[in-house]
Nucleic acid binder design. Structure first.
Lengths: 224, 224
DNA sequence: TTCTAAATGATAGTAATACTATCTTATTAA
DNA sequence: TTAATAAGATAGTATTACTATCATTTAGAA
């Protein structure tokens, strides 16, 4: 049996659904590669079009602008991660074990997932680390939020917050701790690889150290 | 007695030192205002020049490009914050009290500091929250780091890390916890004001709740 | 199978951005 | 007083971020 994971995306993220055509899938695939290679700032629809072998106008039929495309990619990532969290915490009773699994899913790089052939999840993870917060760190954040563009992120945050509450129903900051874990899983990774003085992991580039740090941080906070 | 605080900035941050001329100070003052008003993405040297009443070329004599100017502003902010940390933790013996003061300095909005007339510190704080991480979240981060452009941030992180170690010399992650406090002081503020579902502070916009959250996070982690 | 609508390709064009260059005038320090 | 230095004025270029139009291909319904 071959599984195909299809993530339902908010219609406001795009002008034409990129999942429903070859060109659309190419746009996602190649934009992830290009952003990973050169960074979001130097990423343009022109370069993307050349990369794909189509024209700028072709891209604009799918996405209003490159920021919307970034939000799309980021939203896709968070949806996919929430799916993985669901799968990996499913039959587990102990919320502490659940939370440990979640931390690993957040902090450990993934292997490419065959189920979604037009997305390369391992480089996607790298992109989210460097570019993810740019999706919301803008003047338009409230407007975009009103259009529910950040729903996948908020859903994931809520889900992890619930697991935290399962561990300790009296803990006062489940959502803030949840967003802290999510952000720090990525930022500590970025720091480890690029500004190691901001971490205690040196240049080991060993993600399991981030996991250990986050576990200590989280469980000392929420223990009853 | 009138005090004038002069922060010595890394020479590589600029082409011509903006602190040493009227035009330079205007560039800093007005760029902070403009970035605050419209966001970094829509900020251009042309608009800045018009705002000041000079020409684009004039700005380019001080800063290579707008990203360098952002790094300058961010670096200035971290230097200034480290100075404030030094002042406010000076004669304090108890490292726990010190660390609490630091958390407040990080998380509570400042009033404009008369000592540095050409910088508006309160809106600067707002800018750093929204735009601060864009200074290093780029493809050039290693290059910029080699030029020591992030030294003020790293110095502050080290300083807070040392206070953490004073609280508990055996704590294993002083620097990572330090960078976590710094980043979360800002991110939780941004979330509270723009994406409140990611926090437990609602739309109260009450910074003291962020302080309470961070204190609980930090002190439960480092307690012996 | 044919018709029709939708998607794509090809091309052009515009305003703004991100610079660089040059020349002149004002300021200031030796 | 002169000689450097900073600033102002102006111009120009390549790239970016779009929008518009028309032709061609493709896919689905009649």
């Amino acid at each position: 049996m071959e599984l195909h994971l299809q993530i339902k995306m908010n219609e406001k993220l795009f002008l034409r659904n990129p999942e429903q055509s070859d060109l659309g899938k190419k746009i996602i695939l190649h934009s992830i590669q290009l952003i990973h290679k050169n960074g979001f700032e130097s990423f343009t629809f022109k370069k993307l079009a050349e990369d794909i072998g189509t024209t700028e106008a072709g891209i604009y039929r799918y996405f209003e602008n490159k920021h919307r495309l970034l939000i799309y990619i980021v939203a896709w990532y968070w949806s996919w991660l929430e799916y993985r969290v669901t799968v990996h915490t499913n039959n587990i009773k102990d919320p502490v074990v659940k939370l440990k699994r979640v931390i690993k899913l957040l902090a450990i790089a993934v292997e490419d997932d065959v189920k979604t052939s037009y997305v390369n999840e391992s480089i996607l993870h790298q992109i989210i680390i460097t570019e993810g917060s740019k999706a919301y760190l803008t003047k338009k954040v409230s407007e975009d939020n009103r259009d529910h563009l950040f729903k996948p992120y908020k859903d994931l945050c809520a889900k992890i917050g619930d697991i935290i509450l399962e561990c300790n129903p009296k803990y006062k900051y489940p959502k803030s701790l949840s967003s802290t874990i999510i952000e720090m899983a990525h930022f500590q990774n970025f720091f480890m690889n690029n500004l190691p003085a901001l971490t205690d992991f040196g240049k080991t580039k060993d993600e399991s150290k981030i996991v250990a740090f986050l576990e200590e941080l989280v469980f000392s906070s929420i223990k009853k």
